[in-house]
Design a protein around this nucleic acid. Structure first.
Length: 494
RNA sequence: GUCCCCGUCGUCUAGCCCGGUCCAGGACACCGGCCUUUCACGCCGGCAACAGGGGUUCAAAUCCCCUCGGGGACGCCA
């Protein structure tokens, strides 16, 4: 039994930040490699020098690292192999498998327009395919620039391959145009470089978007011309928006950028978990996966054929991205060990000015307990430092709606709350039981409903309309702070 | 226009290959209820789909054909 080695790659072009569509492609490749104990190679396809940027390279690497998609080789840079690409192009030329084309961009553009207006096919017409050696020499002597085109074999019938997700894909030779493999400035194009690199890297499986399907047929021709066996191809469905347009940074903005999810307080694995479900499922009802479970469950065969829609409504105040993504994030937020959540929110706490080194020292137990107490109401990591600020700092804002409903609507609280503060002064120890006894006793003495005081207390102490059980809140926030906030509540009544 | 791919609830999807167990299952969202003197979590319940039309068959979401719809590619971008 030959041990079937698996080598896959993720080849982003560094022309923008890591996009969730690109991340999804990376995830599928990475999973496939991990599942089969193979290799995952990162290769930056920077042949388009004008559009490639260093920031973009950094952004892509950051994004992949944040998501936890580790690679085994690379990052390689396609530009470093430019000589090899040129040599291969020359070889194709020498072997008569490619030819020089002297048609100008303008001529080609005019032909395309004409064909389109006459409702004809707009393939290259092969003008330069049969130039004689003399004609070629003459044009070269005249210094006319040329591109190199691949000479698609004139054969009857079809060429095809077995796509791992789509099944048998075929195309007639006559439907394939003689495509350009080298620019007039001498630089080989993606379609060729990609094949050369994949051969050198011994790539066994190419998992990429369906938008590459026409390239695939051409690249198979290239493999054949180079005498190499093509790898296995699997074309995954695309991710579209609600209007069924391909999602892009340009039209959709930051909501498609991986970086943005980090800023919005996503747990990286939750994003992976969400993204993998777009176009793939395990065949069971399971939707939440740990890394190990996902690697175990993943298979190319279960990748869908049809495109999926990224359910994002611009401007929806409740859902800043696909609701399912948020719900998966919220799930992980309340199920991950609280220690992990703690380390994930540290930077944000520092940024918000509410970090205390004691949270990693003598206050650690209190810190973890408090995070655990409040997390079930949150959707993102950011919520801890925003909605939960009152647990960690005294300069928190009071939600106007909560203030109105739970406090201002009940003028009697202006007196009651400070009185409650006094009543609480003597509570010792300060725990769930003693605080509850004190509060209920206070309400009984005053002959008022506990709910009135509880709700007012919650708002004054946490700034929120909702939250954990009030006695848990009192214990978490601490006697001193509770009393202080109750006393200061007088100023809320203006 | 040409070529290629796809078409199950609002969205992600199971089922389709190997017809009956599917008056179509799960998840998210939404709506109700329980729990909670709040809210969330949790639990229970509800709403909601086989694009259309023909065929084949005792029987079709599942097989065949057509129509319609959607997407992709058609760059000296990747």
């Amino acid at each position: 039994m030959a041990n079937k080695e698996v080598i896959v790659r993720f080849p982003p072009s560094p022309t923008g930040y890591l996009h969730i569509g690109g991340a999804r492609t990376a995830i599928f490749n990475w999973l496939y490699a991990r599942k089969h104990n193979g290799k995952f190679i990162l290769r930056i396809e920077d042949t388009d020098a004008e559009r490639s940027t260093a920031e973009s390279i950094e952004g892509i690497i950051d994004g992949l690292t944040w998501l936890g998609l580790d690679w085994d080789e690379g990052p390689y840079f396609q530009s470093e192999f430019a000589e090899e690409h040129k040599m291969v192009a020359q070889r194709l030329l020498d072997e008569g498998k490619a030819y020089k084309c002297f048609c100008t961009k303008e001529e080609l553009e005019a032909k395309r327009k004409k064909a389109l207006s006459e409702k004809r096919d707009i393939k290259y017409d092969g003008t330069c395919r049969n130039l004689s050696p003399e004609e070629i020499a003459q044009k070269e002597n005249e210094g006319i620039p040329y591109v190199v085109r691949f000479k698609v074999p004139k054969r009857e019938g079809k060429i095809g391959y077995d796509d791992k997700v789509l099944g048998r894909i075929e195309k007639s030779y006559s439907d394939i145009e003689d495509f350009v493999i080298v620019r007039s400035n001498g630089k080989p194009l993606y379609i060729l470089c990609n094949v050369v690199d994949d051969i050198r890297d011994r790539i066994t499986h190419i998992i990429r978007g369906q938008d590459h399907m026409t390239n695939t047929i051409k690249q198979i021709l290239l493999y054949e011309a180079l005498g190499k066996k093509p790898p296995v191809f699997a074309h995954m469905p695309l991710t579209l928006d609600l209007q069924k347009r391909k999602i892009s940074k340009r039209t959709h903005g930051e909501v498609v950028s991986v970086q943005w999810y980090r800023e919005m307080g996503f747990i990286p694995w939750a994003l992976v978990n969400f993204l993998v479900l777009l176009g793939w499922n395990p065949g069971t009802d399971q939707e939440i996966f740990t890394k190990e479970e996902l690697i175990q469950a993943f298979s190319i065969e279960r990748i869908n054929k049809s495109n999926s829609v990224f359910n994002y409504r611009k401007g929806d105040p409740k859902f800043f991205t696909d609701p399912k993504a948020i719900s998966i994030n919220a799930w992980w937020l309340r199920h991950l060990p609280i220690e992990e959540i703690a380390s994930m929110i540290k930077d944000d706490f520092i940024k918000e000015g509410i970090w205390d080194d004691a949270y990693e020292g003598e206050k650690r137990e209190w810190f973890l307990h408090t995070l655990d107490l409040i997390r079930s109401r949150f959707h993102t990591l950011r919520d801890f430092a925003r909605l939960g600020r009152a647990y960690f700092a005294d300069d928190f804002e009071i939600d106007p709606k909560a203030l109105k409903k739970n406090v201002l609507k009940h003028p009697e609280l202006k007196e009651l709350l400070p009185e409650l503060a006094n009543a609480l002064e003597n509570v010792d120890p300060w725990d769930l039981e003693t605080t509850e006894d004190a509060l209920r006793g206070f309400c009984e003495d005053k002959g008022i409903k506990a709910g009135l005081v509880i709700n007012g207390l919650r708002t004054v102490v946490t700034g929120q309309l909702k939250g954990p059980g009030i006695f848990d809140v009192m214990v978490a926030i601490g006697k001193e702070r509770v009393i202080k906030r109750l006393k200061e509540s007088v100023s809320l009544f203006k």
